[in-house]
């Protein structure tokens, strides 16, 4: 590494760095606080919907997938969380309970997403 490269970055660059951080931070905050109360939780595996859960009634859904994959998804008090799972990292369980539309809980090893939907889960027609 040359001597020049060892110097601390010039002011101009520091400004750019701060700007990028601020922008990303704002985006993260915006996405985090957007979305109203969610009404349904859609469980997708590999992009396909396997279950649609209504958040209005407490219930449990045990997803069992290929190679023994298991995620226990629980709806309680208008929120949904992955209570237990036998995936490699258990990050899905760490994500806690979500209740706002647009939020999601992801279990990458099982390719499972619990997607919360609010008004966007409206239907196109009612069969009656």
């Amino acid at each position: 590494m040359t001597e020049a490269e060892k110097r601390l970055p010039p002011k101009r660059e520091i400004v750019i760095i701060i700007a990028v951080l601020a922008l990303l931070g704002l985006l993260a905050a915006a996405v985090g606080f957007s979305g109203g109360k969610a009404e349904t939780a859609r469980v997708l595996v590999d992009g396909q919907t396997v279950k649609l859960l209504s958040l209005s009634a407490d219930c449990e859904y045990l997803y069992t997938g290929s190679e023994g994959a298991e995620n226990l998804i629980v709806v309680k008090n208008g929120g949904v969380s992955v209570v237990s799972a036998n995936c490699r990292d258990g990050l899905c369980v760490n994500q806690g309970a979500k209740s706002r539309a647009g939020q999601s809980i992801v279990c990458l090893p099982h390719k499972l997403i619990v997607q919360l939907e609010g008004d966007s889960s409206e239907v196109d027609a009612y069969a009656k």
Binding site: L44, D46, G102, Q103, S104, L108, K111, I113, Q115
Partner: peptide, 9 residues
């Protein structure tokens, strides 16, 4: 691959 709005979130 797994797609979905989760990515945007």
């Amino acid at each position: 691959t797994i797609g979905g709005a989760a990515i945007g979130y």
